[in-house]
Amino acid sequence: MKLLTLNFLTCAIKACKSSPASFPLHPRDVELEIVESDINLPFLKNILPRLMWAELRTIAAELGLPELPETAPTRDHLVEGKEEAKEGEEVDEVPSQTARDLHRVLLETTVKEGKLVCGNCAHEYKVMEGVPNFLLPGHLV
């Protein structure tokens, strides 16, 4: 399971949805696996407004990954030399280190085994062979 997926998941228990503590889910006792993929700069730029940055930082910190910057990068931060470029100057779109780091965290770092824990009700969802299981006993009656 990619870490970016956690940007869209919450506790499956209905009563938790109204509690801010139910998002994000917290990875615990996890085995991470790096699955390399080609960096996709246009995608990284476009996904920025959808990222819950503070929550993503929390997850990265909990997993012991390198610390993410306090504020979300801008589109220009993701292109090498773009910030220094003069107005109107064309820069070849080379991904910056920030872009490569973001790609690594969002799309290449995957949870292979472990648990996802709700911060509100403490329910633990198992992740097995990369697939999280959100089925609750209550769903199955």
């Binding site: 990619k2 999280p132 299981n133 959100f134 089925l135």
Partner: peptide, 8 residues
């Protein structure tokens, strides 16, 4: 492709 999760 994000993921396909097992859920209800």
């Amino acid at each position: 492709s994000l993921d396909v999760v097992n859920g209800d």
